[in-house]
Design a protein around this nucleic acid. Structure first.
Lengths: 210, 210, 210, 210
DNA sequence: AATGAATGAGCCTTCATTCAT
DNA sequence: TATGAATGAAGGCTCATTCAT
């Protein structure tokens, strides 16, 4: 039975890989089930053996990237959980993620689906993964509040949310308006983001940084 | 010929009104050209006399809201251009705008279309309106830098971009995760936003605010 | 505007004709919307301009035959409303109808859809037409009861229903088992039906049983 | 090898039971081979080991009910073969059968498949069972003709066919139009059927008409 | 200018059946 | 024998767009 599961995972993986390729190329809405089947080298019907429909494929792909993002954040904190080193590590991890998977970064930022009780497993997993990411960052912030490196008047979770919004916004803006930023400010995308991260850092240090 | 133009504007306006109504009700993708025509009381073909297609209608509607947003920002600064009063005024104007036009706030925040040279007039107009909004805020920031109320190490325009990302992110997050915020933090959407605005203000004041 | 309606009727008529041809050839379920479009010489999309979907086409075709059947019954009674001449005339009209439109005869016999209040117009029309047929026959029976030609202990409407079931059954049986009847009884379909009609006639001429 | 046959019968039986359950619940066309396999606890492919396809399963189920019906008729005549007691017993058996298996009653009534020479075994069996039912009733009628209780001018087999059509029609009508009958005639389904059976009885007791 | 009419190109999904193991 | 895996062939329906009038 182990083999069977492995084969199923293999096939699901192939399909998801094809889907990812196409989603990145043409966008999710513009990718048809036909496209995915062709790209994956399966017949269209076969996709329906491994997934209940296009939506499940989309959600599975999103979940994969949610997990990837969580790993990126966890990795960043593992390598450097000092302050503000860990902060920058997270920022850079997010920026790198957005570079690699622009489509999913935007989706994840905009993800709202608070799962109803009856939600599909996969949506619940997406939600939970989002929670785990928040918890990781919250833990980091909370630890440094305790150590006196951070002085803010609000709960760590709230700070995480606000920072998340700020950092996410800066990264997205940097990516979307790169040419504009270059032209109007003479900055590279990376410089712009770096300044933005510094800028936002002030919100939790309470004084000019660096 | 003045009359002819006026008639054209009248017809375009009717169509756009219908489109706005439907877009807000059902979403853009879910609104068909048929729907718009019916709602506007024109034949479907007639829409194509006044617009080149659905996309142009969508863009025109977005432009309208861009302009609305510009007016909201301008109005906020006109009523209060002190510091940090003007800052909060802008924040609140943005929050109110998002309440009134959630669909378009998200689009505007995510707007990337840096017009290519061959871009349609309407996309250029959207772009220009975005610029004007930035200029308004930039002017406000620059003035208070000059007055010594703000001490930041980066150009005003850059600060505007970063703030814009932060404030926009906070507002969007507050709206999309309202139930979550309520449950996890015990805050109303408004309280969360207020804290976020305060938080972000630190980035430009250089010390704990208020 | 009269012209427009006429054109619409023309197109609907073409589509229905094509549908009727195919339904008779291959059966209703085996006929696809594609088939109908091709046969009618329209694009598939165009069918959806004139009908809301396959079901409406099917119902419209059924309605047409319901009306045809009503006319056949009315015609039979108009030509001969004596007793039992009218009875045989109706029987023969039904038999002829079944010969011409076997598919629809069976559908009509099995028709049950008592329309809900919200039913589509066309289903209501089908129902009403069925009622009208019953009323026609009921009127005939009732008249001859009054004249003393028929002595039955039940209301005319009830007799109509029972006769309808009997005559319909005989006609269907005769058609479906024609070879069997030929082989086992040495009767032609027509002879078998004639005997059946005679047989059933006893139910309304004979005296109370038992 | 006896064991092997027994096993085969066991498996076929399980599959047919599952099919019967599903057909009654959802209708034949709405039941997929997948459904049957799942319900029976076999893999879909295994069904194809025991049956040549969905159609054979359907036919086998129909055959089962044909046999059931034959047994019902035989049972009715065994309990009461007097006149007209046997007649009513048969009528009631048929009505009870239709109550229990509406789906199959209608199919059996409409069954036409006069088996071609190349027909599948199962279709031949269905046909033969139908014949046996006819023979049972024919024997009953013939016996009472001999005893003088029935006076008709046609062969017993023919009378059986016509009665069959009439009785079947009355039962089907009663079931399908129950609400209508209630509303328009103030009769229960049972009363309506009873009147119908009485009515049809006249065809074989009353004297020659005309 | 205004529109009635027509449609091409898709879209997601279903299901009975086959076949290698 | 039993089955997991794969699929060919449809199927009903939608919608933005075009064009002759």
């Amino acid at each position: 039975m182990k083999n069977k599961e492995r084969l199923t995972e293999f096939n699901r993986g192939n399909i998801l890989s094809a889907a990812k390729r196409l989603f990145s190329e043409k966008g999710i809405a513009q990718t048809t089930v036909d496209d995915i089947a062709k790209e994956a080298g399966y017949s269209k019907s076969t996709l329906y053996v491994y997934f209940s429909g296009k939506e499940e494929i989309v959600n599975a792909v999103i979940l994969e990237h949610f997990i990837l993002l969580k790993q990126a954040v966890a990795g960043a904190l593992q390598e450097n959980n000092g302050f503000p080193g860990g902060y920058y590590a997270i920022c850079n991890a997010l920026a790198a993620f957005r570079d690699a998977y622009p489509l999913y970064f935007d989706i994840i930022l905009g993800e709202l689906a608070i799962p109803k009780d009856e939600a599909e497993t996969i949506l619940v997993q997406i939600y939970n993964t989002g929670e785990e990411i928040n918890t990781l960052i919250e833990g980091y912030i909370a630890a440094h509040i305790r150590q006196g490196n951070i002085r803010i008047g609000i709960p760590a979770l709230q700070a995480v949310f606000i920072l998340w919004a700020g950092i996410g916004g800066v990264i997205t803006l940097a990516a979307k308006k790169e040419p504009y930023i270059q032209k109007a400010m003479g900055l590279t995308k990376e410089q712009f983001m770096q300044d933005g991260f510094d800028f936002l850092l002030k919100t939790i240090t309470g004084r000019e940084t660096l």
